[in-house]
Simulated assay, not measured.
Amino acid sequence: MLGINQVKTAALLGLLSGLIVLVSYYLAGNEQGLYLGLLFAAFTTLGSWFYSDKAALAAYQAQPLAREQAPDLYDTIARLSDRAGIPMPTVFLVPTETPNAFATGRDPQHAAVAVTEGILELLSQEELEGVLAHELTHVKNRDTLTQAVAGTLGGAITFVGRILTFGALYGPVTRNNRQGGNPLGVLFLIVLAPLSAALIQMAISRTREYAADAGSAEITGNPGALASALTKLEEMGRQLPMNGNPAFSPLLIVNPLSGEGLQSLFRTHPPTEDRIRRLLEMAQQKQQPQPATA
């Protein structure tokens, strides 16, 4: 039976697809637009299925990391992958001092885990294990594919909204091919549709982050280590925001934006303070003595 997170995620992805269909229907002005929208949604979903990993790795200039270059890191990922019950992913290194990490790939058999140079320098071994276990949980739960599809669909909606922004200068075309369509409809397509897509993406990302934190605690048995890692990553992330395509920011373990001003309204992750609080509560529960059984 599907869990509540999977049901919620599926519903949110459905809303994104529905927005694409709605935009296409408005542009075409007839039922043909519905079919075009469904075809476009299917095409973007299929494209993200096969190419999302390459796009994400390219966005952050990640380079393949051979085992002889980082044997300790390889051994750690292999051990945690075994605990998680998934194949060993391909390992990549991102050449930046900003500490962060992400996982990508359409399924556990085609997964990749990328870490930055900065995170390897910043975290202790236990903290790094907590981060890697978090990313491997994303792989195990197939969150990498979900987030890639959501990002692709959301990007398509935003792209169409930008096209309509220019088209609105000449007046929208109605079903009768006349100028001067419903201004409220134009406003929705230009402003509200991309904003709605962004909010749906954020809802998907936040739901999956909590689940990945819990998965990390289960794999490592040390939720406090991930809490400590998140504290360091959040502090350093404010000083050294990570550059890259914002469409892939939900993949990262902490939000790459500085989190200040208006940017805080569009964070793709739950508040780090809340994630840390939940992890510390898990750690406290593990320390409590278990009641003796008869």
Rank of each mutant, 00 (worst) to 15 (best):
I4C: 06
N5H: 15
Q6P: 13
V7L: 14
A11H: 15
I20L: 14
V21K: 12
V23S: 00
S24I: 10
G29T: 00
N30V: 12
Y35V: 13
Y35S: 12
G37Q: 12
L38Y: 09
L39G: 14
L39T: 14
F43E: 07
T44D: 05
T45A: 15
Y51W: 13
K54G: 02
A58Y: 06
Q63Y: 04
A66P: 04
R67I: 01
A70V: 04
D72Y: 12
L73M: 10
D75V: 00
S81H: 13
D82W: 08
R83I: 05
I86Y: 03
P89L: 08
V94W: 03
T96K: 01
G105H: 06
H110G: 00
A112H: 10
T116K: 07
L122D: 05
L123H: 03
L123W: 05
S124Y: 01
L128S: 01
G130T: 00
L132F: 11
L132N: 00
A133P: 14
L136H: 15
L136E: 13
H138Q: 11
H138C: 07
D143T: 13
T144K: 05
T146W: 11
A156R: 03
V160K: 04
G161S: 13
F166T: 00
A168L: 14
Y170K: 00
G171L: 14
Q179K: 11
G185M: 13
V186S: 00
L187D: 02
I190E: 11
V191R: 07
L192D: 10
S196I: 02
L199S: 03
A203H: 02
R206F: 10
R208N: 15
E209G: 04
Y210G: 10
D213T: 12
A214N: 11
S216A: 11
E218W: 09
A229Q: 14
L230F: 15
L233N: 02
M236E: 11
M236K: 06
L240G: 05
P250T: 03
I253H: 01
P256K: 02
L257W: 15
S258H: 06
S258N: 09
S258Q: 06
G259W: 12
R267G: 10
R267Y: 06
D274F: 01
K286S: 10
P291A: 06
A294R: 11
